[in-house]
Lab assay of single mutants.
Amino acid sequence: DVEPGKFYKGVVTRIEKYGASINLNEQVRGLLRPRDMISLRLENLNVGDEIIVQAIDVRPEKREIDFKYIP
């Protein structure tokens, strides 16, 4: 289970102007929005990149997770 405040290694699977889709595994994925990137710009991400993200909002009833990137 993903817990708010914990850090996870994820893989960038899609990049859109509203954010990047991050997969932690086949069943768990979430969104990294541009506003939640401290020192990383969306255009510097590539599909397949592995990054460390922090879960900031977990809504299991909607199967949604928001991530934050902290270098």
Rank of each mutant, 00 (worst) to 15 (best):
I51F: 03
E43H: 10
N23T: 15
P34M: 07
R29G: 14
N46Q: 14
M37H: 04
V11M: 08
L32E: 03
E16V: 07
R29A: 14
Q27E: 12
N23M: 15
D1F: 14
R41H: 12
I51Q: 00
E50G: 06
L45T: 00
L45K: 01
L40P: 03
D57S: 15
V11F: 08
D1T: 14
G48M: 02
I22H: 01
I65H: 04
N23H: 13
L32V: 03
F7E: 03
K9S: 06
D36C: 09
R29C: 13
Q27D: 12
F67A: 02
L42I: 12
G19L: 04
S21D: 10
D66K: 10
L40V: 09
Q54Y: 12
G10C: 11
R33C: 07
L45G: 01
F67M: 04
I38P: 09
Y18R: 13
R14D: 05
L32D: 02
V47N: 02
I38N: 11
E50T: 14
E50S: 12
D57C: 13
E26M: 12
R29K: 13
G30L: 07
G5F: 06
K68Q: 10
D57Y: 11
N46H: 15
E64H: 09
E50F: 14
K6T: 05
K9M: 10
P60C: 09
G19A: 09
G48I: 00
G19V: 05
I56T: 07
L40Q: 05
V28A: 05
R41C: 14
R63C: 13
V2C: 07
V12H: 00
K9F: 08
E61H: 11
A20L: 08
R63M: 13
L24Q: 01
R59F: 07
I70T: 11
E3L: 13
V12A: 00
T13P: 00
G48L: 02
V47Y: 03
K62F: 10
R59N: 09
K17T: 12
D66W: 13
L42D: 03
V58A: 05
P34F: 08
G30F: 06
T13M: 08
G5T: 03
L45V: 06
N46D: 08
V2Q: 02
G5H: 05
L32H: 02
R29S: 15
A55H: 01
